[in-house]
């Protein structure tokens, strides 16, 4: 960075480099905090639960982390715009059902059905995006409506029946391990995280998303077509939600209308928990891709630890709710800090 100091004139001394060193930034980053908490949780559970670190336990935990990460990433790509997408669950289930129909009823090969299902999810995201941009209504209302519409139409078309005689390759992928521990689903989410990091960091499209999310008016005047960019964000969310739906299908070997609960609502908690814990700013314009991965990891480690300790499921739900509240409060604190520093 030192060569860049050239930009400053003689008075640079008045404004010392406010950018902390790499080590400092890592130390104070959200990701580092999450890693500490993850380490702590693992330490506690592995001492009190001998089965916690068994190969099987770690494998299933990793698989669920993979799915929740994908759900969180889907939501993150919309939080970037300063909005949200309540329909991620519905889009995920609809795409998974479409996937099941293509394989079971239409007899399409898996290699063709996968990209088509993802494109289908992106298409549903496109509907969300266009409606939000054209009407100017907040994404909360639009996606609340589309969640019900997508899910309702899907139930009508599928008659609420599952597709459960899928080709064995689907379930096979869900069971696939890399080495002895790492689930193929976790690997897929890792790869997606890398791809998204590249998108936001190294592509003009990703930067436009961040710029438009942080300050749409300024971005628009600077030549960014914010409407198109927001639509692209929703399509990305739809595609990732579809991918998450396929992952769930691969885990269970069937496409089931109730796989994400009524209206896909069971996904909402992980969808918000992972990115917000990870440090994605709810007001938009700042992402934390690997933070989302770590957020999903923390949630799952604690959940499965508590489950193995035979804590009731409803207590865990309540606990996750509190965790989300804590994460949102942390987001507020970040927001206040940024405003104090004049960054917002």
């Amino acid at each position: 960075m030192t060569d860049l100091k050239l930009i400053g004139g003689e008075d640079t001394a008045f404004l010392p480099d406010a950018r902390p060193s790499l080590a400092q930034r890592l130390l104070f980053s959200n990701e580092f905090g999450l890693l500490l908490l993850i380490g702590l949780a693992i330490a506690i559970f592995s001492v009190s639960l001998p089965s916690f670190t068994s190969t099987f336990s770690l494998f299933t935990m990793g698989r669920q982390i993979g799915i929740d990460t994908m759900i969180g990433l889907a939501m993150m790509t919309v939080i970037v715009t300063g909005g949200l997408d309540l329909s991620v669950g519905a889009i995920g289930v609809c795409s998974a059902m479409f996937f099941g129909w293509m394989l079971q009823s239409a007899g399409l090969p898996v290699a063709l059905a996968i990209p088509l299902a993802i494109a289908f999810g992106a298409g549903l995201g496109f509907i969300n995006g266009v409606t939000i941009v054209r009407t100017g209504v907040h994404s909360f209302i639009i996606t609340l409506a589309s969640m019900s519409i997508f899910f309702g139409v899907m139930i009508f078309l599928s008659k609420a029946e599952a597709f459960n005689s899928l080709p064995p390759a689907v379930l096979g992928f869900g069971k696939l391990r890399i080495g002895t521990l790492v689930s193929s689903l976790l690997a897929l989410s890792l790869a997606t995280s890398v791809a998204l990091s590249i998108l936001y960091r190294f592509t003009s499209g990703g930067r436009r998303m961040l710029a438009a999310g942080a300050n749409p008016r300024a971005a628009e005047i600077s030549g960014v077509r914010t409407g198109r960019v927001f639509i692209a964000c929703h399509m990305l969310a739809g595609g990732l939600a579809a991918l998450a739906g396929l992952m769930v299908t691969a885990r269970t070997g069937a496409a089931v209308p109730a796989m994400a609960g009524h209206l896909g609502q069971d996904w909402l908690l992980p969808a918000f928990l992972a990115p917000v814990l990870g440090g994605t700013l709810l007001s938009g314009g700042r992402v934390a891709v690997f933070g989302t991965l770590l957020g999903a990891a923390l949630v799952n480690i604690i959940t499965s630890g508590l489950l193995q300790m035979r804590v009731g499921e409803f207590w865990i739900q309540a606990f996750l709710g509190m965790l989300l509240l804590a994460a949102v409060l942390a987001d507020r604190a970040r927001h206040t800090l940024l405003r104090r520093k004049g960054m917002i």
């Binding site: 640079t12 406010a18 004049g342």
Partner: peptide, 13 residues
């Protein structure tokens, strides 16, 4: 002659 510690400085600062 923009005075900034680095190109990566947040502009609000």
């Amino acid at each position: 002659e923009v005075k900034t510690p680095s190109m990566h400085q947040v502009i609000g600062n």
